[in-house]
Design a binder for these strands. Structure first.
Lengths: 184, 184, 184, 184
DNA sequence: CATGAATGAGAGTTCATTCAT
DNA sequence: GATGAATGAACTCTCATTCAT
């Protein structure tokens, strides 16, 4: 179980992920990954036949993790938990794959992301509708609110790689949403 | 003034802009630009020494235009005018430079964009504060609101290249902001 | 005698032969052979140190079989038997090694084939001379006739891999030779 | 007319032809051609995008030349002229493209050669039938005879690269055909 | 000024071959 | 004996960039 090969693949994904976060998708070459992992060209190609394949596996891992949504809790607890996760991610620019994802998507993998986005929106809408039903959330247009939550987040996540954020930027995001959904 | 050279440079920027909008920054090669403009290699290099230089000139033009902010009007009129402009841009995915800008920024030109962003934020804050002073806008945290406006916009602009938007997506953006600032 | 190793070698040659017939000599890689035989890299190299070695052993086998010439029969019977064999081979394009042989020869193994050819020619000449002595064959120049038989055959064998033959092509070969040697 | 580029292309084809004759199709790399022509990699790719393209242009040239068949003469004269041409080609192993052609055909370009072969056969059959009609040639089966002529030739042409021919080998070819067609 | 031929560095990819386990 | 991970050399191909004309 978990032979040497599996470990090497894992190491490759791990190191490649760092590279993608640093330089985006296109700027990462197979040679870069060789260097980082200490593998030879041939060794790397044994496992992955190109940066696209590595990247796509990384994404699948990543989103698989993201999709594990919480079990039984109040809408408010779930909301707070989610916002806290997003806040951390926004600040964590070192690990942000957003440029890479964006480039990758623009390179002809739109559908994949359209689906991811649609899934995320659906989950947010469910949460919002549930919270409104239980009276935990103020009444809002669930569709409109989900989009605000998602695109505002995307905007932040992308530019965090590029613009040095002021400390309160991520707080603003969280508190804006809370203000719109929760009674003060 | 405005000799043949100036015209050629203009044509280059024009065609290059289309290419950057289509393919992002890195994917555009000098050859692509030769082809589009009908210039020879040598000819192109006479005017610009690389894609970076062309792109940076395009950006300067672009933002110079964006910076011409309106003269004397009510805060509400200015707001509505600005939102209308943004709404149009969001839908106009064909002409969106956002991928290119983002790649370019990630390639080591962060400062440039940090400045642009800071300028935009300052202008929005002025408008918001002015509108609150005149009583046209509801009281909000100007910093928080500006960031919402800017990052939400960025998120939309970027993903419009990649995700097929529903029609109301841009409307949501506008109406969210209006709801937060104006009395219904 | 005939341990596991011998069997494995046999299996390797068998599968490799199919590959050589399909793709010629150069296009077959050690990996291809691993795949076909189900052996690992290391396993394969234990038996053969390269495609050249495998191929040369296959050829030796092949020609050893071809060299077993018939015992006591009339020249006419031997001729008819040989022609029938050749006719079958000509049509059997799936199993033709001719491309592979030709490539292999061109890669610096000319001598080997020169010898094979010389041997074949000698055997044909013996047969022809014998048949003429017994009066079974019409008088011909034995050297000239052998070359016709051999090179015409080679031409057919090679192009059968490439050109879709009409049905009578192999018949023509046989009947041409018979007409030249036997009384109608 | 005939700018520098045209000359370079010509030089490339010329040198590449020599390489193909020496080593066959697959064994010739773009690097080999660079070396022979003295061009850099980029320089070569400016004109041809791969060995296949170069080879196919060479073949077109070659066969265009071969197709120019003679005008008004007696069947016998035409025959003698053709045989003389073939005889020369058989001996000229340095310039034989046959291995290369054969490999190239086996690589999926069968149709091209099937057509060439069909054309050649048709032309030979015309000649034979014409000669028989005028009484210059002995009566033979035109189809059978054409195939003998063509495949015997192919067999010779191919193996001439590999087997050191005896002097009379090409003579045999010519005289066999003459004996079959002409009164002694 | 403008052309387009040519360069050369470097990315992608494939394989024969070796070697620790 | 057997495995399959890993190496490294060689090949294909692409571009930014230069330079003679």
């Amino acid at each position: 179980m978990g032979g040497k090969g599996t470990k090497t693949k894992e190491k490759i994904r791990q190191q490649a992920r760092r590279l993608f976060a640093e330089k985006g998708f296109q700027a990462v070459t197979m040679s870069d990954i060789c260097e980082r992992t200490g593998l030879s060209r041939g060794g790397l190609y044994r496992y992955y036949s190109g940066t696209g394949q590595i990247f796509s596996e990384i994404l699948v891992e990543e989103y698989a993790a993201a999709n594990k949504m919480e079990g039984e809790s109040s809408a408010r607890t779930v909301l707070e938990h989610l916002l806290e996760t997003l806040r951390t991610e926004i600040m964590d620019k070192e690990r942000s794959l957003s440029l890479a994802i964006y480039e990758y998507a623009s390179l002809g993998n739109e559908t994949f992301f359209a689906e991811i986005h649609a899934g995320a929106k659906k989950r947010w809408m469910h949460l919002l509708e549930y919270g409104m039903k239980t009276g935990e959330f103020k009444p809002v247009d669930a569709g409109q609110m989900s989009e605000l939550i998602l695109y505002y987040y995307q905007g932040l996540r992308m530019w965090s790689r590029v613009i040095p954020f002021e400390k309160q930027t991520a707080e603003y995001y969280v508190s804006t949403i809370k203000q719109m959904l929760l009674e003060e």
